[in-house]
Design a protein around this nucleic acid. Structure first.
Length: 364
RNA sequence: GGGGAGGUUCCCGAGCGGCCAAAGGGGGCAGACUGUAAAUCUGCUGUCUACGACUUCGAUGGUUCGAAUCCAUCUCUCCCCA
């Protein structure tokens, strides 16, 4: 079972440690996303070398292809993809929201994005799949309302998430896998508080904060985190789902978040953008054509230690695979270094200074 | 030497009298990307003293109210036969 220790606190921010059956995870932590049991372009070893100790994978995608039974047959996700760290599986709740299928109290009907075939997810079905996948942490099947959802819609999604969480908990039995509940409530403070009560009353191992970073202004997201802070148990990990820009990570930690995941670093890497202490660099742009410096001369990643901006830009422009591999490795390492720096600052009780210094340099 | 097909905006390539500053690709230049249907998507890409004007479709000359589109000559490229 999962163990969570809070090692140090500074206001709402906390420095902690999650221990799962597969690894020790120092928090606050950033978790790279490997939807289809792979962090796109990088080998598990390369991902490990960026400092990552826990990855995300997606129930919806792996159920469709190659199928959870096959992964179970392979000995579970860790074995199937040769990843020695921990894994968290997202439930497919986000797809329910983004693929806009028909949702009833019973579950969600949707059509496969691969072949158009019809499928039906219930909380029980999702638990079966997640247990078969065998990640260290499984997420409840929830309903995620979009950032512009009105009160009524957010309210309904919140209550459905509560009902489904109950059914998930009843259906979930696993030797080492841990189930996290998910708080919803849109951008409405009272709903967030109510959702936090509904979900934490069920006593999960940890809590996802869902339905944020889905199109609402950042300020709303920060506001919701502040509203939630006093209503979530301090002794359990909090996971802000889908958040991953450097500024949001720092802001999230300040508001008490322990875990983050996001496709942003890997996606923008594939689209030619890299993180830098002063902001993002669109490496495929013309000014880098003859810029022979590393992406970030303070970075210790494989890309920065060996290659220039000009070379990587050339690879990106030429459509060479190595280009997006290098930018992916850099962006992951950048975020892992950022999180490591945050953890040190929390240990040293210097997070306020860190926060100030970070935003002095980093242009959003 | 004979016969045939062609030369279009950075490149390839449509257009074949007006609706053409000229389709569509590519390339180039930017922008977006936050629980991944994403190595994706979107915009711009002749010049300017810009809701209008000017210069472009091998060159020159012509026909026409009007030509990238028709005619003549020149020039270059490719293919076939000698």
């Amino acid at each position: 079972m999962l163990k969570f220790e809070v090692l140090n606190k500074r206001g709402s921010a906390r420095r902690g440690r999650v221990t799962t059956a597969h690894s020790v995870i120092e928090t606050p932590v950033f978790m790279p996303v490997g939807t289809q049991a792979t962090v796109k372009t990088a080998t598990p070893e390369e991902v490990w070398d960026t400092g990552s100790r826990i990855l995300l994978a997606n129930t919806y995608h792996l159920y469709l292809r190659p199928g959870h039974e096959l992964i179970k047959k392979a000995g579970g996700l860790h074995s199937f993809m040769n990843w020695g760290g921990s894994i968290l599986t997202d439930s497919g709740g986000f797809q329910v929201f983004s693929l806009a299928p028909k949702v009833t109290d019973e579950g969600a009907h949707f059509k496969s994005h691969i072949d158009g075939s019809s499928h039906f997810f219930t909380p029980e079905k999702v638990m079966d799949i997640e247990m078969a996948l065998g990640a260290d942490i499984a997420m409840c099947f929830d309903e995620c309302s979009p950032g512009d959802a009105d009160y009524h819609r957010a309210y309904n999604a919140m209550n459905r998430t509560r009902d489904w969480a109950k059914r998930c908990k009843d259906a979930h039995h696993h030797e080492y896998q841990n189930l996290f509940g998910i708080v919803q409530g849109g951008v409405f403070g009272d709903l967030r508080v109510e959702s936090a009560k509904q979900i934490t009353d069920m006593d999960f191992v940890g809590y996802g904060i869902g339905g944020l970073s889905v199109g609402e202004p950042k300020e709303k997201m920060y506001e919701m985190l502040e509203v939630l802070d006093p209503h979530m148990p301090r002794e359990k990990p909090r996971y802000l789902m889908g958040v991953g820009s450097p500024d949001c990570l720092v802001e999230g930690v300040m508001r008490g978040v322990d875990m983050f995941d996001c496709v942003l670093p890997t996606r923008i890497a594939r689209n030619g953008t890299v993180f830098h202490p002063e902001g993002k660099l669109v490496l495929r742009n013309a000014p880098y054509a003859d810029d022979f410096r590393p992406i970030d001369d303070t970075c210790d990643c494989y890309a920065c230690k060996n290659y220039s901006r000009a070379y990587i830009r050339h690879l990106l422009k030429a459509g060479e695979i190595l280009g997006i591999r290098l930018t992916t490795i850099h962006n992951l390492r950048f975020l892992q270094n950022l999180m490591a720096d945050i953890r040190v600052a929390l240990e040293d009780d210097s997070f306020d200074k860190f926060y100030k210094d970070f935003f002095l340099k980093y242009k959003i």
